[in-house]
Each structure stands twice: as C-alpha cells, then as structure tokens.
C-alpha cells in the first residue's frame, strides 16, 4: 500500500548499496527543457514504482557534454540522458554510442524544430524570405546595433550552433544576430514581450509547453532537398564550413543511457532499452505537469496506472 509509512530502514538501504548491484540507484539527468524533465519523472516513477528499484533525478545536472562524458565513464555518477536530440548531438553519438560503445539508447520518438513568432507577428512574417527585409529586422533590434535579435537556444545546446549556421546560409547574418541564453531566461523575456505585444523571433520545438502557454506561429522554411544540410559542428570554424538552407528534418529523440547499467542494474537497462515513447505522450505529460501545474510524480504514477500494459511490456519485453 502506498500510504504505509515505508519503513526504509537505513540498514536495508546500506545493505543494498554494498551487496549485489541489482538494486543500484539509477541517476537521471535534469535537463532544462520540459520534455526531458517529463520523461525523467516518468522513468523515475517506473523504476521506483512497478520495478521496485531506486532512481534519483540529479538536480541541476543539465550540462549535456558533462552527462555524455559521465555516461561514457560508467561510474554511476550519471546513468541516463532523458532526451537526446538527433542529429543535434551527432558528435556525441559518434563518439560514445558508435565509437566507444559506452552509451546505449532506445527507439526514438519524433520531435520537430522550427523557428517561431508570436501570432500577432503572423501578418508581418510568413516565411524566411520576409526576414531578409531590413525594415523587418529593424523591428527586432532591441539593442540598437542595427541587427535584429533572435533566440538561437541555450549555450549548451548543439541546436544553437545549427541555427546560427542556418541564418548564415539563408543570408540573414547581415541583418540578424543570435541571442544565446538559457531557455528559462528566454521564456521570461518572451512572456514580457508577449504581454506588451512586442516582436520576438525564436527557435522552438515540439513537444514543448511553450505552445500551450503562448499562441505561436511557425516561420515557413524551404523544403528539404538533396545537399541542403552539410554541417560539421566540431570544426574549429564550424560556422564557416557548415551549410544548412532548408527546414530541419524531424528530429529523432532518444533516451540514452550508460552501457554500464547493463551490469549495475540490468533490469532497468532492459526497461530503458524497450521504452518506446511518442511525441503525443510526451506532449500530454508536458501539458499535465507544466501547464496544469500538477505534481510531476503524481502525473507519472497516474500514467503508469492507466497504461500498465505498455509499462509491463517495457519492463518484461
């Protein structure tokens, strides 16, 4: 029964930690966008609930390069990256999943990445072509340096560089400059601008609660064609050598976890490998947790209770 005050004797926990690793606490990342957070809560609830194991979301663990390096090490400091966006992190994929073989992943769900404006700007801007007009860029110039600003993402995200590459390839870099700040700060700024009906141009993705919170419109980009995307983010002069002049293909979003988990907590590793999410499910959690402001663990537990077949399939699959 859930309500019995669990007699988690300290001794029992210590014992678990020192004996066979079957019960080792699984450490989850705490990434700073809400899709990743929602997935983290559901995974934690599955591990601590039906699986009866231990899991912990490491607060403030949001530096992705650190997380990948930690999973590569496999020392149990961090085990799971809850929302790995591909191909944004191609470099990490190549190094850890393909190269070292130290990180494993599940089947991905689909995400989309686009550039957005608030609805009240929709009459002014329809497509990338509109952004090439100096008078429009001037509307977005808040720091008086003659360049319009757009939010390209957090400094720790790979997508941030991709947007800079795209703006250069679209020939917009003489009119626009990227604003690179954390998602939370950006959202606070967006809320302020939205309240005053001021122009904003920014990167956003789905699934994300921002679409519920604000009425946003996608800026149309050219369709994909052969050779429209040629990106090398690792190069010293990444901005110069890369090229990207079409809409971003739907992203594959994975749960990545340390290979070492197969030894340290095989049951959880097996479950993680079997997890198959859909964008709709993640969107639903985001809605419940971040829009309806419900307790994340409660949402996760409820979803598990309502979808026991799916969860059991993941655990036993």
């Amino acid at each position: 029964m859930r309500l019995t005050l669990k007699a988690t004797a300290i001794g029992a926990v210590l014992l678990a930690a020192t004996s066979a690793g079957a019960q080792e606490t699984v450490k989850l990342s705490d990434l700073n966008w809400n899709g990743a957070r929602a997935i983290g809560h559901v995974l934690k609830a599955i591990i601590t609930g039906p699986m009866g194991s231990e899991a912990e979301i490491i607060e403030g663990m949001n530096q992705q390069s650190v997380i990948y390096a930690g999973m590569d090490k496999g020392d149990g400091s961090i085990d799971v990256h809850t929302d790995m966006w591909m191909p944004n992190w191609q470099s990490a994929w190549d190094e850890y999943i393909v190269g070292n073989g130290t990180v494993d992943h599940n089947m991905p769900y689909k995400g989309t990445s686009n550039i957005y404006i608030p609805f009240y700007m929709a009459d002014t801007i329809r497509s990338i072509d509109d952004l090439r007009k100096p008078e429009i860029a001037a509307m977005f110039d808040t720091d008086g340096d003659g360049l319009g600003e757009y939010w390209a993402g957090d400094v720790t995200w790979a997508s941030t560089k991709r947007w800079q590459i795209k703006f250069k390839s679209y020939g917009l870099d003489s009119l626009w400059e990227p604003n690179i700040i954390s998602a939370d700060t950006f959202k606070a700024g967006l809320a302020a601008a939205y309240a005053a009906s001021q122009p904003q141009l920014f990167y956003a993705w789905t699934p994300e609660s921002i679409h519920v919170q604000f009425d946003l419109v996608k800026v149309e980009e050219p369709a994909r064609f052969e050779g429209c995307e040629d990106v090398d983010l690792d190069a010293e002069n990444w901005l110069e050598v890369s090229h990207f002049e079409c809409v971003i293909a739907d992203n594959d979003v994975y749960i990545a976890f340390s290979q070492s988990l197969w030894d340290r907590n095989p049951a959880v590793a097996k479950m993680l490998k079997n997890v198959q999410l859909t964008g709709d499910e993640v969107g639903l959690w985001i809605l419940e947790i971040f829009e309806k402001k419900r307790d994340p663990q409660e949402v996760a537990e409820e979803w598990i209770a309502d979808n026991q077949d799916i969860v059991n399939a993941w655990i036993n699959g």
Binding site: T142, D143, N179, D184, T185, F186, A188, G189
Partner: peptide, 13 residues
C-alpha cells in the same frame, strides 16, 4: 531577482 528583472526589462544588458 534576475528573472523579475528580465520580466520587466527584457533580455541582455
């Protein structure tokens, strides 16, 4: 107080 500052005065300097 950074977040309220952003809410009132936008982003950057």
């Amino acid at each position: 107080y950074l977040v309220p500052a952003v809410a009132f005065f936008g982003i950057s300097q």
